[in-house]
């Protein structure tokens, strides 16, 4: 368990900084909602309803009722999701690769433990921090939304948090898998960041184009879109399955490839 606790100690400061980011985002965003839309936002919503999809995409509000608390929270949460993904990528591609990057792998690997054990401990420590990020988001979101909301939307928030958890897990585990499987593990973060960049651009393209649902399986950001969460109050089981599959692939890359490959020292 030493390795697990060591990793836990290494990363709490980063989580602290990210928490400040979440606090700023949710706090300032919902504060604006209280000021802007709380009274008489209905007219604007009706106006937006008559616009074509591409036009609303420009303002990032496809199918979302911005004047409701849930819709507004959904828009803000999209950016929290992006932050979460970035956090997951940095965490996942760093926690294993840093040993090789900092030339400490040789010290770690001479210890009488199996490579699989090392992987497990590191994966676990990172998972705790992924859940930590979500927990911080939850601790900030529930009370702040309660302050400004006129109706109870805690079910919606719970679903948003679940969606955040699943997507973060996908990015975390796949980044972890890449840093385990690649011969040059330092490339993992750049690969995953490019993936994220293209996912983001893809999500914009999806909003711009009509009939673009076929793109959705490729674009993880859109697995659980805000409008669906708000409409149906469930997470789409197909995409939950797909996320599970991606997580398994990530785990496979790490646990099958890493114990076999040469270390890059």
């Amino acid at each position: 368990m030493n390795l697990f606790f060591h990793e836990m100690k290494m990363y709490w400061k980063y989580l602290l900084f990210w928490s400040i980011g979440i606090l700023f985002m949710v706090g300032a965003g919902m504060g604006k909602y209280a000021g802007m839309y709380a009274e008489g936002g209905q007219d604007i919503t009706k106006l937006f309803d008559s616009f074509p999809k591409a036009f609303l995409a420009m303002f990032g509000m496809v199918n979302i009722d911005v004047s409701s608390v849930g819709g507004f929270y959904g828009i803000i949460h999209f950016y929290v999701l992006i932050m979460g993904i970035v956090y997951a990528i940095i965490l996942g591609s760093g926690i294993l690769a840093k040993e090789e990057r900092d030339h400490t792998a040789e010290f770690l690997m001479v210890k009488p433990v199996a490579k699989g054990w090392i992987l497990g401990q590191k994966l676990l420590a990172g998972l705790v921090y992924v859940f930590g990020f979500v927990a911080v988001d939850a601790l900030i979101s529930y009370p702040i939304v309660k302050q400004v909301a006129d109706q109870d939307i805690s079910n919606e928030i719970t679903l948003f948090l679940l969606a955040l958890t699943v997507i973060m897990l996908v990015f975390y585990v796949v980044s972890f898998g890449f840093s385990g499987a690649l011969n040059d593990p330092r490339k993992s973060s750049m690969i995953m960041l490019s993936v994220m960049g293209f996912t983001y651009l893809g999500s914009i393209a999806m909003d711009l184009l009509e009939n673009s649902d076929w793109m959705r399986p490729l674009i993880t950001l859109k697995y659980f879109p805000a409008d669906q969460i708000l409409d149906s109050l469930t997470l789409d089981p197909i995409y939950l399955g797909l996320s599970g599959l991606l997580i398994l692939i990530g785990l496979g890359m790490a646990f099958i490839r890493f114990p076999r490959r040469d270390l890059h020292l």
Binding site: G21, M25, G29, G60, I76, Y79, I82, M83, V86, I89, I90, S93, G94, K98, R101, D102, R186, S189, M190, L193
Partner: peptide, 20 residues
């Protein structure tokens, strides 16, 4: 050590500020 975290923090930070 690695460039990615700095790039992400700074560029993405400003970008999100802009998108919102």
């Amino acid at each position: 050590r690695s460039i990615a975290p700095y790039a992400l923090g700074i560029v993405t930070g400003f970008f999100i500020l802009n998108m919102m």
